[in-house]
Amino acid sequence: MIMNDTVDYNISETEPGSRVKPAFLRYHEIPPKEDDEFITKQQTKFLTKPKKYTFSKKVDAFLVEVYKVYKFFTLFFKESFRSPFHLRELINQCYEVGLKSLPLITLTGFIVGIVFTKQSRPSLEEFGAQSWLPSLMGIAIIKALGPLVTALICAGKVSSGIGAELGSMKVTEQIDAMEVSAVNPFKYLVITRVWATTLIIPVLVFYCSFVALLGSSINVNTNDSTSFLSFYQNAFLRISFIDFSESVFKSIIYGFTIGFVGCFKGYNADQGTRGVGKAANQAVVLAMFLVFIEEIMTVQIFNWFRAF
């Protein structure tokens, strides 16, 4: 039935012999209007039935979410290596993630270095082992504190920022606007951001470790009259190649997680402005949770390597 000028499509005029009144029209949100009293059998076939849950509403929702993550993950790798590549946007995002996080990373790293040194000194002094302080700081900062502190700061700053930005783009139809302009929003928004965090967070991790060691060295130099050169020699004395690799590996994983979680939550935001806040909040919480899980796993995996 194709529409022409002045044709009346009043449904009550079609095929009187095949009409049935479906139950859901009587009980669901569509009020039974005069036109809806009768509806053809063919039409009822395409109207979906009331939803039944496989397990329960919450379990089903969780499983759907897991499936969405899987789809998002596979789409990310599928689209990452297909043209067009938005290099300019990738560089822009590297700037947004990297350079704009520097002041916070600098401040936090420096304070962590000083505070951890101050906290560790009394315990080492008890055993007359304060000369081990530079080595302790080197191991602690390069293997654990640098990556973890950077990842937690970026989870709070970057992941929430991405979640809120993409979430607001989603609810204000900016993502749909890209789609109808024949631009793939997933490639332009998601792939560039996830690669930017994956590439830049390892750099930030080493920058944070450097600043934390600087803070620590200033504290040690002031209190113990240890020279800077001596501090750094001792700090790196106990750092092996595998420790360094662990740090690099961890920071790449953290970077990917932070970008991915922020993009996933933002890209799938709904419920208007409330959804934007929810996406940003969930991005932080989930990214931090996953960072801790990944920390435990990488430590365990690299300890196995060390045992060989």
């Binding site: 449904i11 569509i30 039409q43 939803k51």
Partner: peptide, 22 residues
């Protein structure tokens, strides 16, 4: 543009129920 017998629902909300249009 030509649309024939178009149906669209969101869960239990039946939005389009057999739209024809040119």
């Amino acid at each position: 543009i030509s649309i024939k017998n178009l149906y669209k629902s969101f869960d239990n909300l039946h939005v389009l129920k057999g739209v024809d249009f040119v």
